[in-house]
Write a protein that binds this DNA or RNA. Structure first.
Length: 423
DNA sequence: CCTGATACTTAGAATTCTCGAA
DNA sequence: TTCGAGAATTCTAAGTATCAGG
């Protein structure tokens, strides 16, 4: 069914009253926002049907702008920001946009060596703005930092990205724990998630950072001659369609591909291969700093799993003991029936060993994933064709990697990629 | 240049659903 | 048949990027 029509058909205006905002529970009934029919703008093609407003009311406007993709919008009454109803990720429009995003990242792959050589040169530039630009780009590339737009002070949480880093967010160590030129980052990023990292950097970068920080207060901008608009303008000149966030997409996807190559063992069974996939995914999530609060039930669920593992181990030693005695029995009796019994017992042991292994893999995976969120990178940063190709290459069912919704969103990739796809 | 408006992507938590063990 | 853990889905805030108009 045509997605646009579907969304329109399902669209309805809530009765005036209770609307939720991030952080408050619906049952608390917090009165936050009230969307009134007269605030709503409908955007649809000229010949399409659209919902009629509730009796006695009117829409703010009905327009037909095919330069944008939203179906409905209104101005939220707290911050005055605009809200939209958009198409589902499985829609053609979103799918094509997503594909395009990964194609841009693949074009970056082709010229990234040139760009890296360029910004390394720029570390030596006579001009401060160029040096700052080059060091910022190095961070965005190496550490997958976000661009860091300026935001209005006071109104919002004090969070930063690359271009908005302040002096107080970095500590420089000429030497630390046997490594030279170590930079310690400690700041709050998007959603106030802490970014903490200690990384050795190139000497030139280190010297530049010292220079940028000279005679500044802790709350001064590190890159005082740079902002996202300047940076993106520069990137646009280096490659068509290049912006700061393309580096995150590129580095995430290339890391997944490279980690899958490194971690997948041909002789592993499917659960072990999936563990390898999750580990590759995890490497990306760590790079992008996708964290989560450990689930409230984490300790308990680990304990439950351990109990299962212990029980399985007991079951295994029982089965082994039985196998042994059946073998001994067969040696004495030497008849067909006892030979068959040995085979049955042998199979049982094998089956239990496999089950045990599966549980242990699950425990490892869960433990390693305690504070890491895999969903965001899987949904937004990893070219799905890499995963599709990996599944085809190793005979792993795609359902093990993507659930139903994800398969719908990535239908274009499932159609497109064969086992030899290279990002 | 700078600023605010606009449109779109990315984000983790909250909520709801589902399925296997008891 | 019920219960609860884990998976799936929903929710909407918080980002990025671009552009018009001063």
């Amino acid at each position: 069914m045509d997605n646009h029509k579907e969304r329109i058909a399902n669209f309805r205006i809530e009765p005036p009253g209770l609307f939720r905002g991030r952080g408050d529970h619906p049952k608390m009934g917090m009165l936050k926002r009230r969307i009134r029919p007269q605030d709503i703008i409908i955007n649809c093609s000229k010949d399409s049907k659209y919902p009629t407003p509730p009796p006695g009311t009117k829409w703010k406007e009905v327009r037909h702008d095919n330069k944008v993709t939203w179906l409905v919008s209104w101005t939220e009454n707290i911050q005055g920001s605009i809200k939209y109803i958009m198409l589902n990720p499985s829609s053609r429009i979103k799918g094509e946009k997503d594909w395009q995003k990964y194609e841009t990242a693949r074009r970056l792959k082709k010229c990234v060596d040139r760009l890296r050589a360029q910004y390394r040169e720029d570390w030596k530039s006579k001009e401060m703005r160029i040096r700052q630009r080059a060091v910022a780009l190095y961070f965005i590339d190496k550490l997958a930092l976000r661009a860091g737009n300026e935001k209005e002070e006071g109104e919002t949480a004090d969070t930063v990205g690359c271009c908005s880093l302040r002096v107080e967010h970095l500590k420089l160590y000429p030497e630390s724990e046997g490594q030279e030129y170590v930079v310690e980052f400690d700041f709050l990023g998007k959603d106030s998630i802490r970014y903490y990292n200690r990384v050795p950097v190139e000497k030139r970068v280190f010297k530049n950072l010292q220079l940028f920080m000279e005679n500044k207060e802790p709350d001064d901008d590190l890159f005082d001659r740079l902002n996202t608009s300047i940076l993106n303008k520069h990137l646009q000149e280096l490659m068509d369609g290049l912006t700061a966030k393309v580096f995150r997409t590129y580095n995430a996807s290339i890391t997944l591909q490279q980690q899958l190559k490194e971690l997948t063992n041909a002789e592993d069974n499917i659960p072990a291969k999936i563990l390898s996939y999750n580990r590759a995914n995890r490497a990306v999530a760590i790079l992008c700093n996708h964290q989560r609060a450990p689930p409230k039930t984490f300790e308990k669920s680990m304990q439950n799993l351990q109990t299962k593992i212990d029980a399985k181990k007991d079951q295994l030693s029982d089965a082994k003991r039985e196998l042994k005695s059946t073998k001994a029995d067969a040696k004495v009796r030497k008849d067909e029936k006892s030979k068959k019994a040995v085979e049955t017992k042998r199979k049982a042991v094998q089956r239990i060993e496999e089950q045990l292994m599966k549980l242990e893999v699950q425990a490892t995976d869960r433990e390693e994933n305690k504070q890491i969120a895999l969903g965001t990178s899987k949904l937004n940063y990893l070219d799905p064709r890499i995963s599709v190709a990996w599944c085809k290459k190793w005979g792993v069912p795609i359902e093990k990697i993507y659930n139903k919704t994800q398969r719908e969103k990535f239908a274009w990739a499932i159609d497109m990629a064969d086992k030899d796809y290279e990002f």
